[in-house]
């Protein structure tokens, strides 16, 4: 069962193609990661999927409604939270919740119940009269998510929801996202932090408006990157990097803590060459040399540089 179906969606601004004929599906209740660098067309796509920007061509069904012919129904079946949490800092917690409840037309016992739920997930029970602007970042973020889904939408869009949030708060925020998804809400999320994309059931990556990769994080790591990453633990890392940079079999180098990472095409022969060069010729002491699984960030950078 698909909660979002996107077919050949395109958006042009004059002659500039912001979103270029993309198609994908999002399953009901999954956490779906939507990745891309700045300017890749992420925000334009999200705005179209939320029914606030008309596509140039193509269509999408969001919660069963067409973004072309039923944008109002799309709007009422989704929730949206952006990195600049849409809360009013000069209102109290209570006033913010009331405001969003009002916007979504909630009333009576249903509203009271949902208000309670929001206070609970944001750990703000008994603190309804605090000024929102004074809340710590992590709490504010949970309140923002709570108000974004106060009307119990089937789908929620989270646009870089964890930007600038500390690790502890981020982890508990992801617990909350998992909880929503478990209750059947489809979660469509964008993030710049690729280790967060690991939390997603499925991921797509867009670049220059085009879809360049899709799958689970494991699939992305195995199907989309053909070069291998070698982790080298040795002394004088910086000098070692300078030597390896000059070799043609080394595609890329980076210092990683006390180790050195290099990208190569053939890891078996590269390891031999590195040993011969560093140990044999320059008498470095190599303590460890291993091929490692690329991170999602490695895959992402690879696909974007290739494109």
């Amino acid at each position: 069962m698909h909660s979002i179906t996107v077919n050949n969606l395109t958006k042009k601004f004059g002659s500039f193609v912001s979103v270029d004929n993309i198609s994908f599906n999002v399953k009901e209740g999954e956490i779906f990661g939507f990745l891309g660098a700045n300017g890749a067309g992420k925000s334009t796509t999200i705005r179209m999927l939320c029914g606030i920007l008309e596509p140039t061509s193509g269509d999408a069904l969001v919660g069963g409604f067409s973004i072309n012919s039923e944008p109002d129904k799309v709007k009422s079946s989704i929730g949206y939270m952006s990195q600049r949490f849409s809360l009013y800092n000069d209102l109290t917690v209570q006033e913010n919740i009331d405001f969003f409840g009002g916007v979504y037309g909630l009333s009576g016992s249903n509203f009271r119940e949902r208000k309670n739920w929001v206070l609970e997930i944001a750990n703000l029970k008994g603190k309804e009269n605090l000024l929102t602007g004074l809340l710590p970042g992590g709490i504010k973020q949970r309140l923002a998510l709570g108000t974004a889904v106060i009307h119990n939408p089937k789908i929620v869009f989270l646009d870089e929801p964890t930007s600038g949030v500390d690790p502890i708060s981020r982890r508990s925020f992801w617990d909350l996202i998992n909880q929503l998804s478990e209750e059947g809400t489809t979660v469509f999320v964008t993030t710049h932090y690729l280790e967060e994309a690991e939390f997603c059931n499925n991921i797509i990556l867009i670049n220059a408006g085009k879809l360049v990769a899709e799958g689970t994080s494991e699939e992305l790591k195995t199907n989309y990157i053909n070069h291998k990453i070698i982790d080298i633990e040795c002394d004088r890392t910086v000098e070692a990097m300078e030597i390896l940079e000059k070799e043609t079999f080394v595609l890329d180098t980076s210092i990683f803590g006390n180790n050195l990472h290099i990208s190569v095409l053939d890891d078996v022969s590269a390891k031999k060459s590195v040993l011969a060069l560093l140990e044999g010729k320059h008498s470095f002491r190599i303590r460890k040399i291993d091929t490692i699984v690329p991170t999602l960030e490695d895959v992402f950078i690879h696909l974007i540089e290739k494109g």
Partner: peptide, 24 residues
């Protein structure tokens, strides 16, 4: 002080490369 907050992955990778150069 928190140099990469809000920066996209491509720019972040670029930034780390520059930092490696400084260490050098």
């Amino acid at each position: 002080d928190e140099p990469t907050t809000g920066v996209d992955p491509v720019s972040r990778r670029d930034f780390w490369k520059i930092l490696s150069g400084l260490i050098k």
